[in-house]
Design a protein around this nucleic acid. Structure first.
Lengths: 239, 239
DNA sequence: GCAAAAGTGTTACAACTACACCCATGA
DNA sequence: TCATGGGTGTAGTTGTAACACTTTTGC
């Protein structure tokens, strides 16, 4: 970054792309938009758009999410940078460098199209069809990251409403990882980690319509899990 | 990223910045360059530069490292994306979005200035003075990331030459983390992790000039550590 | 009563910690 | 022979896995 040179003013565009996850009916869902314009008109894609001259990529991500999908109540939104995709040919029109984000939402307000998006909707992750650009890869990278961060961070609470039961928190892990967890052990593990959750005194709620009402908890102040909550033996796992 | 709009052609520049680490004399060192031009002329900064229209950020990072510091023999270089810094005011001249990388080198070939860099040199991490732009923050983020990745990945071998002793590998952990590790336990832990290291049959080498010659090992094929090698109780650690 | 979900208890095993101890080498 | 670093052994503790069992709700 040393001074101006002739490469500084080549037409680079900088965009953001968002992989926004939520849980619906016990399945991982992702927020997709249908493109209204070429290229890839009619194809589904991740929401996103151009970064404006006066905002950071993080600000652009929140703005575009509201503009394209109508999700303006983003109070519970957890947003974090994934990585930046910069292959020269990733957009057929011009040179576009995209800063990708992974985002988590507790409940799932209905989405609707806006600005450049013909429509927006929550789609089951496994049912996601071929996406525009390299968004399929970005989405897969985001899912891997979220799954991995559940192990050593308190990220799971970002999928839950402000008050939740331990059963709901366990379902977050089971849904994202696709494995069943031992309920008693999960409970002890979570309660033994200081700052992960804190009890809401006296409160209780039914989880599945039947069964004993469960105590309610709020997200604690901790962000990291020590020791981590490891996935049940997926053998060799990628770095 | 839906079609052209008026924000697409604002003058964005895209750069890369590299935090390159190595170990020298038992201390963590980082590769810095002295800026030859305004702004921040004469100040130290991370090596880096503009991404060209026909290359990815990863390619640009390797190219700039060679151009600015003379490090062209990058066979043992481990390079990975850190994150992207995009605050609007991070460069006083214009809008510059920078993709930052963390890099690790086993040995430390001498560096010399080149292209935009007046000079380049390996600097002890703790002795790093105030850096240009937001490079101080990037450097701190990179160091945090490297320290964290040592816990759950085989990254430590990237600091070691092709053949190394377990004592050298342990010094990587001790130097980056700033804590002493129990030698026998470290040895067992590393050898018990399949694919972390593989023995070089028959080979041995003296580590510190004195003592019993140590067996030599090569980096294995694994990339992740399961279970992880956790730091000794730093209490609350950031996410 | 029965099914479902919360919550508690217990035992066996795996991993980690903290040492003590021996070995090989250079000064 | 002493200091230094490599390598092995082992007891105590902690954490996890895999259950059985009780409690409280809706139907």
């Amino acid at each position: 970054m040393d001074g101006y040179d002739r490469y500084a003013f080549e037409p680079f565009a900088v965009t953001v792309d968002l992989a926004v996850f939520t849980l619906r009916a016990g399945a991982l869902h992702v927020l997709l938009v249908e493109r209204g314009q070429e290229p890839y008109a009619g194809r589904w894609a991740l929401p996103g758009g151009f970064v404006r001259p006066d905002e950071s990529a993080e600000s652009a991500a929140r703005r575009e999410l509201g503009e394209e999908t109508g999700l303006t109540d983003v109070s519970g939104l957890h947003l974090e940078q994934l990585r930046t995709y910069s292959e020269p040919d990733r957009d057929p029109r011009m040179r576009v460098v995209s800063v990708a984000f992974a985002a988590l939402l507790p409940d799932a307000p209905e989405a609707h199209g806006g600005s450049d998006a013909a429509q927006a909707s929550w789609t089951p992750y496994d049912g996601a069809r071929e996406l525009a650009f390299d968004h399929g890869r970005i989405l897969a990278d985001a899912r891997d990251r979220v799954g991995a961060k559940l192990e050593y961070s308190c990220l799971a609470t970002a999928f839950c409403p402000p008050e939740f039961t331990l059963g709901e928190l366990r379902q977050v892990y089971e849904t994202v990882w696709g494995t069943a967890l031992d309920r008693p052990n999960f409970r002890r593990k979570v309660l033994a980690t200081p700052g992960f959750v804190e009890a809401v005194p006296g409160a209780a709620r039914l989880t599945g319509g039947r069964g004993k009402p469960a105590s309610l908890y709020r997200a604690g102040t901790a962000t990291a899990l020590h020791p981590p909550l490891l996935r049940p033996t997926p053998e060799g796992r990628p770095a």
